[in-house]
């Protein structure tokens, strides 16, 4: 259970949701974290549970233990990044995700119900032969880090603009494509800035991004903000003028929704669940060559009418993922199973 991790936060919020309904919840983890004392390490779990909900996004000992026990589960699937993205960067991680995929096919016959963050993830579960699949988005406290949006809706400096991306610095998120697009955008807007928020995983990818930015002569305008606190994350959202996403694999895309909730126009490459999460509230591109992404960002930064439009739509669209809505969806997804056990 990590902090600032979407799946861990989601798990904690499910616990809150169920405990409010007087359901006794235990979280079983692979490694016990000091900051989260209310968890049970996998080796101490005796397998007792009326309903087991497995959070699955990578190969884990917890999933292995579930497979060994051969007992029915509810599979909450957050998708698994294909191993090919990590093979040349971090072979260990590639093995973990590969293992996650193998475990997924072993978990399928044990699954009573699949809960998918997005329709994209749901399709994958159905493809594995799981018939009972419900779509219920990731739970996270959109409201806790985002106070009422009061961002300046004024025009962006014609030579400037701050473009943001939030997410692990990882090959599947393709921040290198953002740096490339930014190098072209700098031609149109020499004072613009790119901010990449997120921890590096793998670290070599960060070094390569820095080398790329240096070789393209934009290094002094790219901020590698690293992992930031909720407070600083909110500040980055407020300070930025657009969010760009070139990711090739997103099971859901929490930052897309956070950006929308903060009134930030989004320009994104249409891959995996990105288009589904954004809907018609952002500029979704089928081509992410640097020139195309740069043109899109230039247009979004410079066209006030479009900005205002995207801002309003984004805020409205983000309401779909507000915690009050998604908690209800999650409860509906679990309710009958939990009540049947009572």
């Amino acid at each position: 259970m990590a902090t600032a991790d979407a799946t861990s936060n989601h798990t904690r919020l499910i616990r809150e949701l169920l405990e409010e309904r007087d359901i006794d919840v235990r979280i079983v983890v692979e490694r016990k974290n000091r900051s989260d004392s209310n968890t049970i390490p996998i080796e101490k779990w005796n397998g007792e549970a009326q309903v087991s909900i497995l959070q699955h996004s990578i190969g884990s000992e917890v999933a292995q233990s579930v497979i060994r026990r051969n007992a029915p589960i509810v599979l909450n699937y957050h998708n698994i990044t294909p191993a090919s993205y990590f093979q040349v960067w971090q072979p260990d991680l590639a093995k973990s995700v590969q293992r996650g995929r193998q475990q997924l096919s072993q978990l399928a016959p044990l699954t009573r119900r699949g809960i998918a963050d997005s329709e994209f993830n749901a399709k994958e579960l159905r493809g594995l032969g799981i018939d009972d699949v419900v779509v219920a988005p990731v739970l996270w406290q959109l409201g806790s880090s985002a106070p009422p949006t009061d961002r300046d809706d004024g025009p962006v400096d014609e030579n400037g603009g701050t473009v943001l991306f939030v997410g692990r610095l990882a090959p599947n998120k393709c921040q290198h494509d953002l740096v490339a697009a930014f190098a072209v955008l700098s031609r149109f807007r020499p004072q613009s800035r790119l901010v990449l928020v997120g921890d590096a995983s793998p670290p070599q990818y960060l070094q390569s991004l820095k080398s790329l930015a240096r070789r393209l002569e934009v290094i002094d305008r790219v901020v590698f903000a690293g992992k930031v606190s909720d407070k600083n994350l909110l500040q980055w959202y407020q300070l930025s003028d657009a969010l760009a996403c070139a990711s090739e694999h997103e099971g859901f895309g929490v930052p897309l929704v956070e950006a929308m909730a903060n009134g930030l126009p989004v320009v994104a490459y249409d891959a995996a669940a990105v288009g589904e999460t954004l809907g018609d509230s952002g500029i979704v591109l089928s081509d992410k060559r640097p020139g195309t992404m740069a043109m899109a960002l230039h247009r979004v930064l410079g066209d006030q009418h479009l900005r205002t439009n995207l801002r309003h739509r984004g805020i409205e669209s983000a309401q779909r993922f507000d915690i009050s809505v998604t908690r209800e969806q999650m409860w509906v997804a679990l309710k009958d199973l939990l009540e049947a056990e009572d």
Binding site: V284, L285, M295, R299, T308, N309, E316
Partner: peptide, 21 residues
């Protein structure tokens, strides 16, 4: 919050891709 006239974002995306081309 008064919403401005709705823009067809799908059309804007296509326009942008054509402009880039």
């Amino acid at each position: 919050m008064n919403s401005p006239d709705l823009i067809d974002t799908a059309r804007v995306s296509v326009e942008i891709e054509a402009e880039a081309k």
